[in-house]
Amino acid sequence: MEPARPLVGRAFEESTMAPSALPSFAGFGLGLRVPHYADVLEARQPLDFVEVISENFMVDGGKPLHVLEQVRTRYRLALHGVSMNLGAVDGLDATYLRRLRLLADRFDPLWVSDHVCWTGVDGIHTHDLLPLPYTDEALEVVARNIMVAQEALGRPLVVENPSTYLSFDGAMTEASFLAELCARTGCYLLLDVNNIVVSATNHGQRVEDWLDTLPVDRIRQIHLAGHSRGEDLLVDTHDAPVPSPVWDLYARFMERLGPVATMIERDGNIPPLATLLDELDEARRIAGASARVAA
């Protein structure tokens, strides 16, 4: 592992790089996990794209990259990261960005995404998506880091709302924070509907705040997943089928959105591929019905 070097970029106002527009992509996909590698490679599955965890492929070589090469010949690809650390007060890791750029250039993804969160500080990585206070200071930090990432990656970044289990005093709601990030940086949104349900439930908030505040023209992708109930909290475990509240909110969003990519995200208790494809058919049905309502 190369030593981590912080990359503290210019203030975004000074950046010379204006992110290019990211075309929308309407399709239905899955988060690709190891148990389904053989299924997606041995037969063409009804998937418009697959999403992989970027860090799993930011390696020197070996089987992961070999598999991804084969996957890419058959499917469109989205790269989804968990370790960019957009809330890093001391800037982004230049080595990380360089390796992610190499991966993106090699596999030509639809887009590259990560989370609006922080993952560590002072060189310690928690490998968890930690919550940010929605303050002006945090907005400055995350916006600056997004601009640095977009410049380093040579493409606009897509950022995802995380599930949160605690909240801090802040001047903004999460939806306002995300909207402001889009306005300041030109980034796009990956809307995790399950995360909205989890966060809204945990903090006693109304989902309408997200519905009414998020800039729908910036949303390029939707995650659908399941959660579990922890100690008085919903926890974003991705180990269960998509539950009714998530489907319901997905339908409400789809009535407002234009072309968008939807996918099922499953990381635990991973069922046979056919089960996830059935869930994806439900998403197709809802999206189709929503499109008819919108028309």
Partner: peptide, 12 residues
């Protein structure tokens, strides 16, 4: 509110 913190402690 320690409940949420305990989720992150468990995750870490």
């Amino acid at each position: 509110d320690a409940r949420g913190w305990r989720v992150h402690l468990g995750n870490y």
